[in-house]
Computed example of a mutant assay.
Amino acid sequence: MRELKILVVVVALTLITYWGVEPFAHTQMHPHVEPVNYNFAEADKITSKDTVEETKAALEEAEKSGDAKAIHPAKTEYEAAVSFEKTINDFWASNEEPMNLTGNAENGAVLVQSNCTACHSIKSQGFPQIMDDASSAAAYGVVPPDLSTAGKLYSKEYLVGFIKEPTLASKVSHKFVDGKVHPMPGYGWMQPQEIADMVAYLKSIAPKEMTNKEVFQNACQRCHSIKYGDMQKGTMTAHTPVENIKAYMGKVPPDLSQYIKSRGAQYLHEFVNDPQKHLAGTAMPRVGLTQEAEKQVVSYMEEVGDSKKAQREELGPKFLIYLVIFAIFAWLWKASKWREVH
C-alpha cells in the first residue's frame, strides 16, 4: 500500500508539472500571438486594428491618471497607430487591381529586365550578378536576391505588394524613417497592368520544384548562416558580409543551425510569417513566403538541427514500454524479498 501511495504522489507531481508548470512557463516565454496567416492583407488589417485598440486603451489609462507626461507620448502613439492603420489598409486595397488582372509574361520580361537587372540577377535567364556579394552589400546594405525563384517562393499578392512598396509589404516601414531609404525603390508609379505583367513573368520562369535546401538558400541565406548541425547537409555562410548586415539590420542576424531546437517549429512558422508578432520593432522583414515554401524552410532547419527527430520519436514509445515492464519486474522482485523479511 505504501508503494501505491508513493506512485500516486509521483504521478500527481508529474502531471502538475507537465500540464500546469510547463505550459505556464511556455506562455511566459512565448506569449500567444495571432495564428499564422498567409493572406497578408487580412493579417495586416487585424494587427493594425489591434494596435489601434491597444494604444487607445493606453491613452485612456494615461488620461485617467492625469499625468501630463504620460498623456503626450500615449496620444502620439495612438495617432501614429490610427494613421498607419489607414496607410496599410489603403495600400493593400490599391493592390487589388493588379492582383485581379491577367498578366502578360512577355511584356513582363521586358519590364523586369529593364527595371530590375541593374540590381538583381536572374541567373536562370542568363542575367548574372552585376557585382560580387561584398560589393553589392556595400552598395545596398544587403545582397539583392536572385529573382529566378521568386515566382515559386512568393505569392502573387506578396509580389504585387513588394513591387509597389517594399517597406509596407515586408512590414519594415518603421525602420526607414528620418530620411532612411529602403535599398529597393517602390514601383507604385507603374500602371496596374505593368505590375501584373512583371509578376506573371516571375511566375513563368520559376522552377516547378525546389528542394528544402534550395528554398532555404534563396529565402534566408542572404542574411543567415548555417554553421553547425548535421554536417552531411553541409554548411553555408550568409551572402551579406557581417559588417554590412550589422549596419543594415542593427545587429548580426543569428546563425540558424539550432533554432529548430531552441525555438521549435511552431514559433519558427509564426516568426517567418510575421516577425513583428514575436519581436515588435525588429528589423527583420516579413519574408512573404507561401505556406509551402515556409514549410520547406522549417523542414530544412529540422533536417540540419534535429536530424535524429524521427528516430527519437520512434524510440520513445518503445522506451516507455520498456520502463513499464521493468517497473513491473522491479515491483515483483521487491515484493518477493520483503515477503521473506516479514
Rank of each mutant, 00 (worst) to 15 (best):
I6Y: 12
Y18V: 13
T27N: 09
Q28A: 05
H30Q: 14
H32L: 13
N37T: 04
N37R: 04
Y38G: 01
E42G: 01
E42S: 08
D44W: 00
I46K: 06
T55C: 01
E61N: 06
A70E: 03
I71P: 00
H72L: 10
A74R: 00
K75Y: 10
T76M: 08
T76A: 07
T87W: 02
M99V: 05
L101K: 15
N107Y: 08
N107S: 14
N107V: 13
G108S: 07
A109F: 08
L111S: 12
V112K: 00
Q113P: 00
C116F: 03
H120F: 05
S121I: 06
S124L: 05
Q129V: 01
Q129D: 12
S135P: 03
S136K: 09
S136M: 07
A137S: 07
A138E: 15
V142Y: 01
P145W: 00
P145E: 03
D146I: 00
S148H: 02
K152H: 15
K152I: 00
Y154V: 03
K156R: 14
I163Q: 04
K164I: 10
E165D: 15
P166S: 11
V172L: 07
G179E: 02
K180F: 02
K180Y: 03
P185I: 01
W189H: 11
Q193A: 15
A200I: 10
P207R: 10
P207W: 10
M210Q: 09
K213M: 05
V215M: 07
A219K: 13
C220E: 05
C220P: 07
R222D: 05
Y228P: 06
G229T: 13
Q232Y: 03
K233D: 00
T235W: 04
E243A: 10
N244E: 09
A247Y: 03
Y248C: 09
V252G: 02
P253F: 01
P254W: 01
Q258M: 15
Y259Q: 15
I260Q: 06
R263N: 12
R263V: 01
A265W: 11
Y267L: 07
F271R: 07
V272F: 13
K277E: 02
H278V: 05
P285H: 01
Q291W: 04
Q296A: 09
V298K: 01
S299N: 15
S299E: 15
M301T: 13
E302P: 06
E303T: 08
V304P: 10
D306Q: 14
K309W: 07
A310Q: 14
Q311F: 13
E313S: 04
E314H: 14
F319C: 02
V324C: 03
I325K: 12
S336M: 05
H342W: 11
